[in-house]
Design a binder for these strands. Structure first.
Lengths: 202, 202
DNA sequence: AGCTCGTACATACCGGCGGTATGGTGAAGC
DNA sequence: GCTTCACCATACCGCCGGTATGTACGAGCT
C-alpha cells in the first residue's frame, strides 16, 4: 500500500519527516475528517510508513494534536500582529475580530480546531490547549476590557470569553458552510459587533 | 459476543426493538462517544444482534441520526412549553434561555446534539436537522424580535440566530465541562443576558 | 579499523469493528 | 397448505489502528 521505494524520505533528516507527517495530517484531516483519514494514507502522502509515524508520535490522537497545535500556532501568530495590546481595547477587539473572521474562512482551522478538536481530543484537553492559543487571545482581550473598567458589573471573565468564543466559532462555521462566504462573513461581523456592543457601559 | 438467547426481544414487536436500539444508542453514544461505542455493544444492550440493527437502520450513522432526533424531540417538547409564542418576545427569550441552560446540564444533549452532531453527521446535515428542532426555536425567537421591531437596523436573522446559538452551545459545553455545573450555569446565564441586551433599541 | 549502541525508520502481523451476505422463523394472506 | 414477506440471527469479510520485530546507519569509543 504505502511503500517508500523511490527516494526514501529518511535521507532528508528526521525533523523534516516529522514536519511532513504533520503537514500531511493537516491536509487529510481537513479534507476527510479525523475518522475517515487513515494512517496509511497520511504516511503514504508523506512518503513514509507507519513505522515513522509511531516513532515520532504516540498514535493517531497524538498526531492530530500535533496538527492541531501547528494550525493554532499559525493563526495566533497572525492574530497577534493586529493585536499588539497597546491601543484601545475596543479597537483591538474589533481588529482582532476582523482578522479572526478571515481565519475562519480557512478550512484547517474550521475543521481541526473548531469542529473536531473538542471531539477528538476530548473537551478538557481541547480546553487546556486552546487556552494557550486562539482562545487565549479572546480571553486576554476580554480580560483587558474588564480590568480597564469598560464592562460594568461583576462577571466571570472566563465564562464570558467562552460564550463569546462560541459565537465566534459558530460564526466561523456559518461562514464555512455558506455558499457565499464573503457575504456571510460581513453579516457575521455585523451580528458579532451588535452583540459585543451590549457589553459597553451605560 | 452478543447472543439473544434468553427471551428474544422479537416477541415484543418491532417498534419496541427499534426504540430499544435508539435508547441503547443514546446511552452508549453519550457515555463513550460515537467512535468508541461499538455496534455489538449497542445491540447487546438492547438484547438483539446486528441483524436487527441493519434491518431498522441503514448503518451506524443512521442510528446516530435517530438518536440525535430522539434527543432533540425531547428537548424541543420541553422548550416549547415555556415558549408559547404569545407573550412578550423578550420575556419568552429569557424563559427559553433558562430552560435551555437546564437542558445543557444533561449529558445526551451536550454530547450527541451539540458536540458530536456536526462531526458525525457532517455540518450541512447537522444544520438542516437542527433547523427543525432546537435551533429552529432560537431562530423563530430571534425572528419575532426582528419582525416586531425590537431590534434596530437591518440584519440577517439567520446569521444572528446562528451566532447566538453558538454562544448558547458554547455555554452548554462550558457548563458540562465545569466542576461546579450549577454555579457555572448561573454565570453563563448572566453572560448571555448581557450579550442579548445589546440587541435592544436605544 | 572494528565494535557497540542508539536513532530512525520499514515490514509483518494481530485484533476489533463496521458492514454484508445469507439463513431461519413465524405470522399473514390467498 | 403453500407462498410471501417482515423480522431478525449467524457467519464472514475487509479495513484500519496498533504492536512487535527487524534493519540501515551514523556517532562515539577503543
Amino acid at each position: 500500500m504505502s511503500r517508500a521505494t523511490e527516494r526514501p524520505r529518511r535521507v532528508e533528516y528526521s525533523e523534516s519527516t516529522r514536519a511532513a507527517l504533520v503537514e500531511s495530517a493537516i491536509t487529510l484531516f481537513t479534507e476527510r475528517g479525523y475518522a475517515r483519514a487513515s494512517l496509511d494514507e497520511i504516511t503514504g502522502r508523506a512518503r513514509v510508513t507507519k513505522g515513522a509515524l509511531y516513532h515520532h508520535f504516540g498514535g493517531k490522537r497524538a498526531l492530530f494534536e500535533a496538527a492541531f497545535e501547528a494550525v493554532e500556532i499559525g493563526v495566533v501568530t497572525r492574530l497577534s500582529d493586529v493585536m499588539p495590546g497597546e491601543n484601545d481595547p475596543w479597537e483591538e477587539l474589533r481588529a482582532g475580530l476582523d482578522a479572526f473572521l478571515r481565519v475562519c474562512l480557512e478550512a484547517p482551522f474550521q475543521r481541526i480546531v473548531a469542529q473536531e478538536g473538542p471531539v477528538v481530543l476530548g473537551y478538557q484537553r481541547w480546553y487546556d490547549l486552546g487556552e494557550r492559543y486562539t482562545f487565549g487571545l479572546v480571553r486576554a482581550s476580554v480580560q483587558r476590557l474588564v480590568s480597564t473598567g469598560r464592562i460594568e458589573g461583576t462577571m466571570s471573565v472566563d465564562v464570558l470569553a467562552r460564550v463569546i468564543f462560541g459565537g465566534l466559532a459558530s460564526g466561523a462555521a456559518t461562514i464555512a458552510g455558506s455558499d457565499d462566504p464573503n457575504r456571510t462573513s460581513v453579516e457575521v461581523g455585523e451580528a458579532l459587533e451588535r452583540l459585543l456592543r451590549g457589553l459597553r457601559d451605560g
